[in-house]
Simulated assay, not measured.
Amino acid sequence: MDIKRRAFVMGGSALCVTFLGGATSSIDFGGTPHESLLIAGSDEFLPYAKKLIDAFVKTKPGIDVVVEAGGTDLGLLALKRGAIDIALASRELKATEDEKLTRSYMLSRDAIALVVNPANPLAGLDRKTAASLLLGNVRDWGRVAGQPGPVQVYSRKAEVGTQKALEKLVLDHARMGLEATVVESGVAMRERIAADPRGLGFLSLHDITPAVKVLAIDGVPMNRGTILSGRYPFSRSFFCITHGTEKKAVREFMDFAQGPAGQALLVSLGLIAVQ
Rank of each mutant, 00 (worst) to 15 (best):
I3V: 10
K4I: 06
F8C: 07
S13D: 07
C16N: 11
T18M: 13
G22I: 00
G22T: 07
A23H: 04
S25I: 00
F29E: 13
G30E: 10
G31L: 04
G31K: 09
P33R: 07
P33I: 02
L38R: 13
A40G: 11
E44S: 13
L46F: 15
Y48F: 15
K50G: 08
K58H: 14
P61M: 08
I63A: 05
I63C: 05
E68M: 06
L76D: 06
A78Q: 09
L79W: 00
K80D: 03
L88H: 10
L88V: 07
A89N: 09
D98F: 09
K100E: 12
T102P: 04
R103A: 02
D110K: 04
D110I: 03
A113E: 13
V115S: 04
P118W: 05
A119Y: 13
L125A: 09
L125V: 02
R127D: 05
K128E: 14
T129Y: 00
A131H: 07
A131F: 08
L134V: 07
R139L: 12
D140Y: 01
G146H: 01
Q147W: 00
V151G: 14
Y154L: 03
S155P: 00
K157C: 01
E159D: 14
T162N: 11
T162H: 05
Q163T: 12
Q163N: 08
A165S: 15
L169M: 09
D172R: 01
D172F: 06
H173L: 14
G177F: 15
G177T: 06
T181G: 02
V183P: 10
A188R: 04
E191F: 01
D196W: 12
P197A: 01
R198V: 05
G201R: 05
T209C: 11
P210Q: 02
D218V: 03
M222E: 10
M222A: 09
T226W: 03
Y232T: 05
F234N: 06
S235F: 01
R236F: 13
F239S: 06
C240W: 14
T242N: 11
E246Y: 00
A249S: 13
A249H: 01
R251C: 02
M254Q: 09
D255T: 11
D255M: 05
L265Y: 00
L266Q: 05
L266M: 14
L266D: 01
V267F: 04
L269I: 05
G270R: 03
A273P: 02
Q275M: 04
